[in-house]
Computed example of a mutant assay.
Amino acid sequence: MDDQLALRIRLFREGGQVGPDVAEFVTTELAALENEGNTVTEESAGMLTSHLMMALTRLMDGAPIEQFLTDDQVAAELADHPDAVARARLLAARARGALGRTLPESEINFLAMHLAVLAQQPAR
């Protein structure tokens, strides 16, 4: 993870937008993605990082997460990216184990979209 992405996480945490448990979980997930050979930088994973931190924070806070109107469209776009969908489901399972909360299907789909984009980045 590059310094700018680490700074993003630190600012979210220090600003009180995410708790330390969420920041740690996201940092661990980004490290795993990097260890798998993905390029994990502010440019390639900034949106994924913010989305994941905020989605998990909403869950931890008990905030309602509604289905998105674009769920069917997103699911259709993901048909060509089964690895990203599988990776998003594994991430959601780890979040459930680590944080005790379950991400809804719509959030998993949006994470899969971010992961599909990340997988298309040039290898490091």
Rank of each mutant, 00 (worst) to 15 (best):
D3L: 15
L5H: 00
L5P: 03
L5I: 04
A6W: 02
A6N: 14
L7Y: 11
R8T: 15
R8D: 15
R10I: 05
R13Q: 15
G15F: 08
D21E: 15
A23Y: 07
E24T: 12
F25I: 07
F25W: 04
F25L: 04
V26C: 10
E29L: 08
A31R: 12
A32N: 15
L33Y: 05
G37S: 00
T39R: 14
V40A: 02
T41G: 00
T41K: 11
E43F: 09
E43K: 07
E43A: 09
E43H: 07
S44M: 04
S44Q: 07
A45N: 05
G46H: 09
M47G: 12
M47V: 14
L48P: 12
L48T: 11
T49L: 07
H51M: 10
M54Y: 10
A55N: 04
A55W: 01
T57G: 03
T57R: 05
L59D: 03
D61I: 02
G62S: 13
I65H: 05
I65G: 01
E66R: 07
L69H: 09
T70I: 04
D71Q: 10
D72E: 06
A75E: 07
A76N: 04
E77N: 11
L78Y: 04
A79C: 05
A79Y: 03
D80P: 01
H81A: 12
D83E: 15
A88I: 09
A88K: 00
R89V: 09
L90H: 04
L90D: 13
L91C: 02
A92C: 05
A92H: 00
A93C: 02
A95E: 01
G97K: 06
A98K: 12
L99D: 11
R101I: 13
R101S: 10
T102P: 02
L103D: 02
P104D: 10
E105N: 07
S106P: 03
S106H: 13
I108T: 13
L111T: 10
L111P: 01
A112G: 08
A112M: 07
A112V: 07
A112S: 11
A112D: 00
M113C: 13
A116E: 06
L118A: 06
L118P: 06
A119C: 08
Q121R: 14
P122Q: 09
P122M: 00
A123V: 14
R124V: 11
